[in-house]
């Protein structure tokens, strides 16, 4: 996968590896075709270097967001809403406030983009899946699945049956398990979310991803 240089003045902070690869492939599929200014394959100064933090807790550690806000002309931050959208939003907003970047108290449909640390700089925040509902990357990716997929109801049933035998994952992780169960039955069994997006198993061009792509374009292009 072609990627922008680490020295790019644009950066996107995400929680983990899954976010990194899923988002990278989505951006690649969306913007390469259009010869866009944020093509991840072409050496473009607009393409953000995507930086993953091994979890939200690490991402929110003092220094990470502040340092990035002071360094990059365009900074995007993507975090999961999980079950507490307001709390995660506040945590990110609080970090940005310490360096003088003001973000609205609540997320907005379509994501938020505000003036950054220096004049002409921008900071964007996106709360997965859609800046409104609780959830995570998987909730964002689920609508990218082809409609009326024959195996999806089976994956749901199989996962639920397994839980009946023994629940080994958290009560909020049902979708994560069902989606990976479904991925286990694709042509490339058990491909990770990034590969699924790159192969079109989860369609990066689905209209469901339009709002996120528009946010990416508005922030980095």
């Amino acid at each position: 996968m072609g990627r922008p240089a680490r020295s790019s003045p644009h950066r996107l902070l995400v929680e983990g590896q899954d976010d990194l690869f899923a988002i990278a492939h989505l951006i690649r599929a969306r913007f390469a075709a259009a010869q866009s200014a944020i093509d991840l394959d072409a050496p473009s100064p607009n393409a953000p270097w995507i930086e993953q933090h091994d979890g939200l807790e690490n991402l929110l550690k003092a220094g990470n967001i502040e340092s990035a806000a002071k360094t990059y002309l365009r900074l995007g931050i993507v975090v999961d809403a999980d079950q507490v959208p307001a709390a995660h939003w506040r945590a990110v907003v609080g970090r940005l406030a310490t360096v003088g970047v003001t973000v609205p108290a609540s997320p907005a449909t379509g994501g938020v983009i505000v003036p950054g640390y220096q004049e002409g700089w921008r900071v964007g925040v996106w709360l997965m899946p859609d800046n409104a509902r609780p959830g995570a990357l998987e909730d964002f990716l689920l609508p990218l699945m082809p409609g009326e997929d024959a195996l999806w109801p089976e994956a749901v049933r199989a996962t639920d049956a397994a839980v009946q035998v023994e629940r080994r994952f958290g009560v909020n992780d049902d979708l994560k398990a069902r989606l990976r169960c479904w991925l286990a039955w694709q042509a490339e069994p058990g491909a990770n979310l990034g590969v699924a997006v790159s192969r079109g198993v989860l369609d990066p061009l689905s209209p469901a991803a339009d709002p996120f792509a528009r946010w990416v374009e508005a922030l980095f292009a």
Binding site: R6, A62, N64, E66, S67, T71, Y117, Q118
Partner: peptide, 28 residues
């Protein structure tokens, strides 16, 4: 403290911010 030509103030980084930049290969 990063000086940028033509800008009227330097950008200060605390120890935690320098450490974060080092962890994530951020070029300060």
């Amino acid at each position: 403290h990063r000086i940028e030509r033509g800008r009227d103030r330097t950008t200060p980084y605390t120890a935690a911010e320098i450490a974060a930049a080092a962890r994530h290969h951020s070029e300060l």
